[in-house]
Design a protein around this nucleic acid. Sequence first.
RNA 1: GCUAUCAGCCAGGUUAUCGUCUCUCAGCCUAUGGCGGGGGGAAGGAAAGUCCGGACAGCACAGAGCAACACACCGGUUAACAGCCGGCUCUGCUGUGGCAAGUGGAAACACCUACCAUGGUGGAAGAGACAGGGCCACAGAAAAUAACUGCCUUUGGUGCUGAGGUUUUGGAAGGGAAACCUUCCCUGGCCAAGGCUACUGCGGGUAAAGGUGAAAACGUGAGGUAAGAGCUCACGGGUUUUUGCAGUAAUGCAUCAACGGGGUAAACCUUGUGUGCUGUAAUGCCACGUAUACCGGCGCUUGAGGGCGGCUCGUCCGAUGCCGAAGGGUAGGCAGCAAGAUUGUGUUAGUAAUAACGCAGCCAGAUAAAUGAUGACCUUACGCUCCUGUGCUAAAGCUACGGAGUGUAAACAGAAUCCGGCUUACAGGCUGAUAGUUUUU
RNA 2: GCCAACUUAGCUCAGCUGGUAGAGCAUUUCAUUCGUAAUGAAAGGGUCGUCGGUUCAAGUCCGAUAGUUGGCU
Length: 136
Amino acid sequence: MEPKQRYTFKKNEKLKSRKAIEQLFKEGQSFSNFPFRVLWKIAGSNSNPLQAGFAVGSKHFKKAVDRNRIKRLMREAYRLQKNELQQMLLQQQKSAIVFFIYVGNELPEYESIFKKTGHVVSRLKKITDENSVVDS
RNA sequence: GCUAUCAGCCAGGUUAUCGUCUCUCAGCCUAUGGCGGGGGGAAGGAAAGUCCGGACAGCACAGAGCAACACACCGGUUAACAGCCGGCUCUGCUGUGGCAAGUGGAAACACCUACCAUGGUGGAAGAGACAGGGCCACAGAAAAUAACUGCCUUUGGUGCUGAGGUUUUGGAAGGGAAACCUUCCCUGGCCAAGGCUACUGCGGGUAAAGGUGAAAACGUGAGGUAAGAGCUCACGGGUUUUUGCAGUAAUGCAUCAACGGGGUAAACCUUGUGUGCUGUAAUGCCACGUAUACCGGCGCUUGAGGGCGGCUCGUCCGAUGCCGAAGGGUAGGCAGCAAGAUUGUGUUAGUAAUAACGCAGCCAGAUAAAUGAUGACCUUACGCUCCUGUGCUAAAGCUACGGAGUGUAAACAGAAUCCGGCUUACAGGCUGAUAGUUUUU
RNA sequence: GCCAACUUAGCUCAGCUGGUAGAGCAUUUCAUUCGUAAUGAAAGGGUCGUCGGUUCAAGUCCGAUAGUUGGCU
């Protein structure tokens, strides 16, 4: 019996370590896909194959309510679309840390966030494939 | 019913699917971990600003003095406060009533402001300006123990007047021989006591008048005086004080006496009262790791340095010590941390803030930071379309109510140690009070 | 989380102890030049971030509020 597909986003899938984040900002690579800027880093096998974090600059959105809402929307869109990437990483014996930064100036709709996140995830999948060639 | 103001309360709801954090219960596995499952809970009235006040923790058991800061009518309330409640005084706005003056009117009377009384509703950083110095632009005589103009006056000078004195010329009368003498008159000169509504120097008195200004030395009237003045008196108003009465008190009313030299303390200051400082990223513990190395300086009981706000003192710690330069490591976990000045509700006391007691409940705890996404229905407001009935109309049509469908909108805003306040933001709704207005009775 | 500082002309800044807000650059006009620049002369431009209070009078003193910037760990 095939296990049911679950869309989760638990604690261990979140990027929480201060050290890891600093490393990511220092050494990681990045690309932009408006309204996001994405930092990523691929590493060897790990118990947590994929960890992600989200941020909104307080310069763009002064009110905490708006920042929270954008982060929630981003998290929701990511949760529903990251499963394939996670599977890929598991198969290829790799781990990745990803960080999303919202750089837009206006409060977005959920639909547009969902679509853009889809683009980002597919691009990340492509990157993972390419990197495997280089690594091996 | 509508509008305005004030006060209080609420802050969209139900459900499906997929998720997040946490507590708890039992279970399984490859067991310091992981997995899925059941059950409970999961933002606010402001969680915000960080403006006050506490709890709690550390620094000496938190000490002394100065400095600094805060507060400032009275009483109550509280863990505490710059908060809150009640009162007092002053004051803004407003309603009603009275009424000098003024306006209109032939008159009756009406209108209406100053003022008074009273009601409502706001505001007050509301101690002290005889403790002290400072400042008060421009204008104005003067901005604070004032004296410029003016008014009055002593005295000196000048001017005018001038009783009187003296003298020149001339005339008249008398005496005389004459020279001349005497008297009177006219004219001119000189001296001059005194007087003056004149001018002026010096000194004194005075604060009534003086175009200014935000502010001008209690106001009006009379007496009084050299001229004047609270100098005196009457009326009015103010400040301080004595006594009596009312009140816990601030204070009010009456009374006796004194005073009259402004404003500014939200500029310095004085008086009284209070405050030690730093903040949960405090603080304690565990784990991991490096460099107690090297270089320069200071010091080792005659002591460097430190004990977290500025200085002085006091006191305590202090030698594997302190400072600097360069460099290295860590940035994980647990406690603090969720049962409390607690929440809901009721009773009693109190005008109230609030307090006491009873009953019931346990109600966020994240840490790159949880409470979300999507759909459906309901609620409220507005727009559009349709329907049928009522009203107007001959009809078309129009408007309102009702029903259905559809679309849009539903605020301000997100816990980060916790409480009590304050301030600010806020769609819409509900309740109460007061005032105005309209309709009906 | 905690704590500071700043906001004045289009720009960069002065303005002390309350008394008619100024400088430099920029802008406009005129002169100079064949013309431009430079130079010289003149002019305009400010609710002193916003609201309230104290005072006769507030850019200045006090309170609130908005925005900007910085620091601590």
